[in-house]
């Protein structure tokens, strides 16, 4: 009889016993790689299936103008989702990105329309507003020790209030066409610039997350914050930086939405944070931290836009669209928890 290592009785709390042939060099089996990417691959497959389904159901779905419209409607949520992916990978959450985006849009309006500052200054000012909010979130979480949920919930309300106060509860309009072109111009014919900005944001975020120290510590903090701290990493500093990065993306989203609408709408914004978080989760980033990807987030955001657009083309009532998105989130998180249960 060949003796194999029997599982230990305590294995319920630990990783499954893995038996490696002695002496053999270990390579990661392809199955393992696939499994760790499962959620993301699943999301991609879902996206493809949705596109095929809607293309068959309606001839007006897979047209250049409709696809371009879907991409445009993904831009704002997508940029927010890309930024908040960092926060969620650390095991945190940022509820302030929706109304924060609105405050950034309002500030951009104040700088450009009310104060008459040059365009570029206004845009940088709007983005800096976002960075400042993220920075304050980070301070509150690390130095005051507030749970991210609470700290960013407070910031969500503060941003909402400030946006209304500063704007006097009235939209701020942008006169210059050049500003509107930030979102609606077409450097590439047929493709709104907002979409280019989304892709640029995603590309930068991808590089930062996978190739830099900031990205490494984002995963490390989400995986085991205490261990990271004990390894001599200044986790407070990096956490603040990560929330600031998320804030920068919030600022970019604020500029893009203001440019797209030609105005800063102070009443807008609530609900965007939840849609962005939903996109991140559908894309396979774990709410428990330590796992996630920008590509997944992008796919997640596209799934939501395709769904909403497709349902609209099929003339399904707007009210039902939220129900469908809700179900998609349930299914996505359920498959994720199934995978984790198998791993445990």
């Amino acid at each position: 009889m060949t003796t194999s290592t029997p599982p230990t009785p305590t294995s319920s709390a630990t990783a499954p016993e893995q038996i490696n042939p002695p002496g053999g060099t270990e390579r990661r089996p392809i199955g393992q790689v696939l499994r760790s990417q499962l959620q993301q691959s699943l999301a991609f497959a879902t996206l493809v299936v949705l596109i095929i389904f809607f293309s068959i159901s309606s001839s007006s779905f897979f047209t250049v103008s409709n696809i371009s419209g879907i991409l445009l409607s993904t831009a704002v949520i997508g940029i927010l989702a890309v930024g908040t992916t960092f926060v969620i990978i650390t095991g945190g959450i940022d509820l302030s990105i929706g109304t924060g985006m609105t405050l950034c849009a309002v500030m951009t309006g104040v700088f450009i329309t009310d104060m008459g500052l040059p365009l570029i200054v206004g845009v940088i000012g709007g983005i800096a507003t976002g960075a400042l909010m993220g920075f304050i979130n980070g301070l509150n979480i690390t130095f005051l020790g507030l749970p991210p949920f609470i700290a960013t919930l407070a910031m969500m309300l503060i941003a909402q209030g400030l946006a209304l106060v500063i704007s006097g509860v009235a939209p701020i309009y942008f006169a210059e066409q050049a500003f509107k072109d930030i979102a609606l111009g077409t450097l590439i014919p047929g493709l709104p610039n907002a979409v280019l900005i989304l892709f640029a944001c995603a590309l930068v975020a991808y590089v930062v997350l996978s190739k830099t120290i900031l990205g490494r510590y984002t995963f490390a903090i989400g995986s085991n914050e205490e261990a990271t701290r004990l390894s001599g990493v200044n986790t407070r500093k990096w956490t603040i930086l990560i929330y600031t990065v998320a804030g920068i993306f919030t600022g970019i989203a604020g500029v893009v939405i203001a440019a797209r609408l030609g105005s800063a709408q102070p009443q807008l914004g609530t609900g965007y944070e939840l849609q962005a978080i939903a996109a991140v989760i559908i894309g396979g980033t774990s709410l428990l931290g330590g796992r996630g990807s920008i590509l997944g987030t992008l796919i997640g955001a596209l799934i939501m836009s395709v769904l909403i657009n497709g349902l609209r083309i099929l003339s399904i009532q707007t009210e039902w669209q939220n129900v469908v998105v809700g179900i998609v989130i349930l299914v996505a998180v359920f498959t994720d928890s199934l995978r984790r249960r198998r791993e445990a």
């Binding site: 990205g215 995963f219 490390a220 085991n224 261990a227 990271t228 001599g232 990493v233």
Partner: peptide, 26 residues
């Protein structure tokens, strides 16, 4: 005191990673 989502090498050298380009790129 390990980060389960990181690799063996990433865990061993956490905080002391070989870096290039101004100390920011891994």
């Amino acid at each position: 005191n390990l980060m389960p989502h990181l690799t063996v090498a990433q865990n061993i050298y956490i905080g002391r990673e070989p870096r290039g380009l101004g100390g920011f790129v891994l």
